[in-house]
């Protein structure tokens, strides 16, 4: 029983990380039809700069962690908005070029990060409570998992409130359905594009700081490794569906944890098989729109 509780809650924690990356990917694809392979770079730079700020303030304190998370989110948002404005905007509806540019940016940014911060992982110091455990139903759960889950839920609620109760949220929801018709109502949908990139980048940057707590370090490849699973989550959840991304994040991460424990470390394989099953049986994903 305690093992199942442990796997479930650590799975939820990992799912929280996947959601922070996948939510932006899904929103960006849903509104703009852009598969953004550079999304992992927003996560990585958010993590690096966030921890640089934390280190200079007060390593290991709560307020340094909060500063790191805020910095990570802001840096992620700014880099993502700049990417949309300077690179992607000229390439809407040119999907091959989008893939080439975002893949190129992802590769170049990893090289840049390695040039600045080196190729070895940089270990981070977080508040001591996060390194401790709490016992639930006999399972000793690492405390940082609770924080990951809490932050992901807050981000999900914030995005839902934004989509439901703001004019730009309304534009984004309409744009996901029919982008051209939104412009035909006199709305400059490009601003919504930049905003959605910024929101996705902020979630990724925040996810970068949290991922480095989860793994205990930050490296130039942390974004790329999470991005693979975030893409899988986005496809399983249904491209463009925020709710689908949230549900699929949890399902994928929990499946991964259970398969790793009970099936001899085959978590990644189980996730890929789940992706194949979804593509074969329900190509639009769990909650994606019909083609």
């Amino acid at each position: 029983m305690s093992t199942i509780v442990l796997l479930l809650i650590t799975g939820l924690g990992l799912g929280a990380l996947y959601f922070l990356v996948a939510s932006g990917l899904s929103l960006i694809y849903g509104l703009m039809g852009v598969l953004n392979f550079a999304h992992g770079s927003f996560l990585t730079i958010g993590a690096f700069i966030g921890w640089e700020v934390a280190r200079r303030l007060s390593d290991g304190s709560w307020w340094a962690l909060v500063a790191a998370m805020l910095t990570g989110a802001v840096v992620g948002a700014l880099v993502a908005a700049a990417t949309e404005f300077f690179l992607i905007r000229r390439l809407y509806n040119r999907h091959i070029e989008q893939v080439l540019v975002t893949v190129g940016l992802a590769l170049a940014s990893v090289a840049l990060f390695e040039g600045i911060w080196g190729t070895d992982p940089t270990y981070v110091t977080s508040p001591s409570w996060l390194g401790q455990t709490t016992e639930i139903l006999g399972a000793r759960i690492p405390n940082n998992r609770f924080m990951l889950i809490l932050v992901a839920v807050l981000v999900l609620v914030a995005i839902v409130l934004f989509l439901k109760f703001t004019r730009y949220g309304l534009i984004v929801r309409a744009g996901v359905e029919n982008r051209l018709m939104v412009t035909a109502l006199g709305i400059d949908v490009r601003r919504a594009f930049t905003l959605v990139f910024a929101i996705g980048g902020a979630a990724a940057g925040l996810g970068g700081v949290l991922a480095s707590i989860y793994y205990g370090y930050v490296s130039a490849h942390i974004g790329g490794s999470l991005l693979i699973f975030a893409f899988i989550v986005t496809v399983i959840g249904g491209l463009g569906s925020l709710a689908g991304a949230a549900i699929a994040s949890v399902l994928v991460a929990v499946l991964q944890q259970f398969a790793n424990f009970y099936l001899g470390g085959t978590g990644d394989l189980a996730v890929v098989l789940a992706l194949a099953a979804v593509l074969l049986l329900r190509p639009r994903g769990l909650m994606g729109a019909k083609a």
């Binding site: 309304l170 929801r173 309409a174 359905e177 029919n178 051209l180 018709m181 412009t183 035909a184 109502l185 006199g186 709305i187 400059d188 949908v189």
Partner: peptide, 27 residues
Amino acid sequence: PTHKVVQLGVGYVPEDREVFGKLSVAE
């Protein structure tokens, strides 16, 4: 661009309606 043409005072009723099906009438 389209949105600027519309902002100059052009209303558009498209073929096949093209309402946003997942939004309410009020939205």
